[in-house]
Amino acid sequence: MSVVPASYPSTRWRRAKVGLFRAFTILALAFVIGPALWIIGGVVVKAVPGWRWNVLTTLSQGTSGGLENAIVGTLLLMLGVTVVAGSIGILTGIYLAEIAPPTRRGRSSGAVVRVVIDVLSGFPSIVLGYVGYVALVVGLHWGYSFLPAVLILSLMVIPYIAKATESALHQVPTSYREGAEALGMSLGYGLRKVVVRSALPGIVTGLLLALAIAGGETAPLLYTAGASNTLPSIAPLHHPVAYLTYYVWTDWNQPMASAHVVSYDASLILIVMVLTLLVVSRVIVARTQRHSESAR
């Protein structure tokens, strides 16, 4: 005959706790989905009544007019980040995952790089923007322009790209590398033809997410890219670049109704851009997962 200790919770209370736990998990999920829908819906509701399609094709007049210059500017900045941060980030990831010579204790070298990348990935973006302003814009007399903006944005997103690349490479089976070596491929040739190629979907996904982050940033751009109501010039220095987040940030609390419309339109375009990038990266992941499962 067993003795149930007096402190043992009653069955009813345990059953109630199960209910509470299940309600808590669903409620928590609702607190993620609800605000996400609320934010997107809020932007759509505010932007759609004043939406005119020529916003996409006319230049801004600051607190009124279109956003063509800002769209082109944001896309240009994203292109610049793709080139600078993409090449550096992907190479860093490849080096850390594949090339870095192992140390005597069997761990991969590049410990300092890993620490810096971890620290940079959580570094306040405005501090990077401040340094871009005092050191590049003012210190080197570059002025508000394309190059300092791209450099600062790149420093911000390199960690994301490097980490995504590294983890994508870690998912490539070791047998691929052994196969490449067994076929007599050199390290570089094997990387190019076998290892990096099979990690490419993961790398591209990381790059797209980094682009979404870069395109939606405001703080590091305000004091590096400056502001401009004209189309971005080809010159990388001394010419300010317009970008979408600038108009959201400056026009929302202007007194004129036309400024609010600019702010909401810029928000809507940004949301569409970010969602497109997210969906594309999601599709890439889904497709490659399907392929890898069928290959097994």
Binding site: V32, I33, G42, L275
Partner: peptide, 25 residues
């Protein structure tokens, strides 16, 4: 599909979350 909302929340630009926060929330 519901997990995708976590990624959406991560991807929404902070200036838009700020705009929503000050105008709506």
């Amino acid at each position: 599909p519901l997990g995708f909302f976590v990624e959406i929340l991560a991807g929404v630009p902070s200036v838009i979350i700020g705009l929503w926060g000050v105008l709506v929330l």
